[in-house]
């Protein structure tokens, strides 16, 4: 069995926890080895939507910058004909999905090795993001069910609002593998002021 390494599995920093006071108002962790699939297809084509619903129980979000969730998969709007499917660790998609899509103009590309997710939470996560993010992340505008692609610390990312984490409201940042180290380094620097804890990757 060959060892696999997630994009941030070798990340090192002098401090896993940092805060001058007792307060650590932000935590970060890698959500490693999730299944990432980039899906493209024509949402005007009703069969296309139906196949996804039937095969993996997913209703693709058709409203820009929103997320839909099924039992196993999260599907994020990336464009009018493009979605990111984020799934369980066993990244196999059912063969029947491919079979169902066969004959349609679609594209389903595995990006599981090329992306990872940094989850950031804690009471001060919005302030940490604010140091790099030009989006309006105020709860009035960025709430459950929302996602947004943007540029964070020179890196193209997808932000996904997380309301299902047992530790409270959080944010998933989907980032390309080669930018992950830079982005996490930046976030940690930005989080020093509020105090942070870097958790071990969740795998």
């Amino acid at each position: 069995m060959n060892t696999r390494f997630s994009p941030l599995s070798e990340f090192t920093t002098p401090q896993q926890r940092f805060g001058a006071s007792d307060r650590l108002d932000c935590w970060l962790e890698e959500q490693a080895f999730l299944a990432h699939f980039n899906l493209r297809g024509d949402p005007q084509h009703s069969d296309f939507l139906e196949v996804l619903d039937e095969q993996i129980g997913l209703r693709l979000p058709l409203v820009a910058n929103t997320v839909s969730v099924s039992q196993q998969w999260r599907s994020c709007w990336l464009g009018p004909d493009e979605w990111l499917l984020l799934g369980p660790k066993s990244k196999e998609l059912p063969e029947t999905l491919m079979a169902g899509l066969n004959g349609m103009h679609y594209s389903l590309v595995d990006l599981s090795g090329g992306q990872t997710v940094i989850r950031i939470g804690g009471p001060a996560w919005r302030d940490v993001l604010g140091s790099a993010c030009t989006l309006d992340l105020h709860p009035r505008t960025f709430e459950a069910g929302r996602c947004a692609q943007t540029v964070l610390a020179h890196s193209n990312v997808l932000l996904i609002h997380v309301d299902a984490d047992e530790r409270g409201e959080a944010l998933d940042i989907v980032v390309r593998r080669s930018f992950a180290d830079h982005l996490l380094r930046w976030l940690i620097d930005a989080a020093m002021e509020v105090g942070f804890e870097l958790h071990r990757p969740r795998t």
Binding site: A64, N65, G79, P80, T134, L135, A148, Q149, T150, V151
Partner: peptide, 11 residues
């Protein structure tokens, strides 16, 4: 037209 108002940085 899809994502709404965003900063020039993203374009």
């Amino acid at each position: 037209p899809w994502c709404g108002s965003r900063d020039q940085d993203e374009f």
